[in-house]
């Protein structure tokens, strides 16, 4: 298999790309799930059921992308997996508790006695909040090189808040697409209230990342790289401008353009994520371990890759099928 050159070079690269893709898909898909959970306290009782219904058939599969991402980190870059997760021991714990609460209360709020429903709604919100905050916190710590100093933690607290508000924004954008009537109008209002989180979050990360290490600074601010990279900030600003403009006008008659805020928000997540990936490549543990140092044996990676090539298209296929079956506006969730 020397078709593409040395497997010890292209296999780690391929797996880093696959892992990066899984994290990106997770952030967008579970981002809107968690965001919808974050909006729960703002909704009235009838709306709460529709909020949950809008993500009901999807959240489980969405969360599986996280398992795949951490699984790929685990299988392709074992030393990095250990280094990152032991450094993030506490925030990982908080995230897991959050995801447990979110997933369980999802079922419980619909099945437990009515008198408990408010409590499970609360747990649903709390779980979504804990998971979002801890993910934002981990993002900040990762950017700062996984060292626990006061300024780093301070930055991580900021990214925790921004990512949480950013998730609530993409959640609101999802609701604009998947609901109608009063709830849709509420969602437009929530999206207007949340867009600043996305802007500040992307801004803060973009400003901070180049100053974390000279290597990253060099990668961005040297000619001709800066020329190639300029579309990234320009496109991001264009998308923010579009959202700003569109949200003031939505909803339109016949529900035209209702899908665009979600698409634009996804675009922003993708651009911001692309920038981060560019900054940190080839490191998987910032400034310490590269993907080439951390990679598993090529034979083992090859075994996984062969399976991936068969399975990933199937996963993509039936995921699309599921979104197609549950297309249109979210209605009441029924088992029958």
């Amino acid at each position: 298999m020397d078709l593409f050159g040395d497997p010890a070079v292209w296999l780690p690269w391929t797996f880093a790309a696959l892992m990066g893709l899984s994290i990106l898909i997770y952030v967008v898909l579970d981002g809107f799930d968690l965001g919808v959970g974050l909006l729960m306290p703002l909704a009235n009782d009838d709306e709460k059921d529709r909020l949950v219904a809008s993500i009901g058939p999807f959240w489980d599969a969405n969360e599986t992308w996280l398992v795949l991402a951490v699984g790929l980190l685990l299988v392709a870059f074992p030393p990095a997996h250990g280094a990152i997760l032991t450094a993030l021991y506490l925030p990982v714990f908080v995230m897991l508790i959050g995801l447990i609460l979110r997933g369980v209360s999802f079922e419980m709020r619909a099945k437990a006695p009515l008198s408990q429903k408010a409590a499970w709604n609360g747990a649903f919100f709390a779980g979504s909040l804990l998971a979002s905050l801890s993910q934002g916190f981990m993002l900040g710590m990762y950017i700062m090189g996984l060292t626990w100093t006061l300024p780093h933690v301070g930055f991580a607290v900021l990214t925790a808040v921004f990512l949480t508000v950013g998730y609530s924004f993409i959640g609101a954008a999802w609701l604009i697409w998947k609901t109608d009537g009063d709830l849709q109008q509420h969602a437009v209002r929530w999206a207007k209230g949340g867009i600043w989180g996305l802007i500040l979050g992307i801004g803060a990360i973009s400003l901070a990342t180049p100053f974390v290490s000279f290597r990253i600074f060099e990668k961005w601010f040297s000619w001709p790289e800066i020329g190639y990279l300029s579309p990234l900030p320009i496109l991001s600003m264009a998308l923010v401008g579009y959202l700003w403009w569109k949200l003031r006008r939505l909803p339109f008659v016949d529900d035209r353009w209702a899908w665009t805020p979600f698409a634009a928000a996804t675009g922003l997540f993708v651009l911001a994520y692309g920038g981060l990936a560019y900054s940190f490549y080839p490191y998987v543990v910032p400034e310490q371990i590269t993907i080439y140092d951390a990679a598993s044996a090529p034979e083992s990676l090859m075994i996984i890759l062969v399976g991936t090539l068969f399975v990933l298209p199937a996963i993509a296929g039936y995921t699309v099928l599921s979104y197609f079956i549950f297309r249109g506006k979210a209605t009441e969730l029924r088992y029958d």
Binding site: G56, P57, F58, D60, A61, E63, T64, V67, L68, G71, L72, L74, V75, A76, P78, S296, A297, E299, S300, I303, I304, G307, T308, V311, L312, I315, Y318, T319, L321, S322, I325, F326, L333, R334, Y335
Partner: peptide
Amino acid sequence: GNVAGPLLAYEIMTAFFLEAVFLGIMLFG
């Protein structure tokens, strides 16, 4: 990791996604 990794990867790819996606259709579809 060279042994455990591929086995876990196959579990996630062949099983977790299958059950998670079709669960939505099974429950609400």
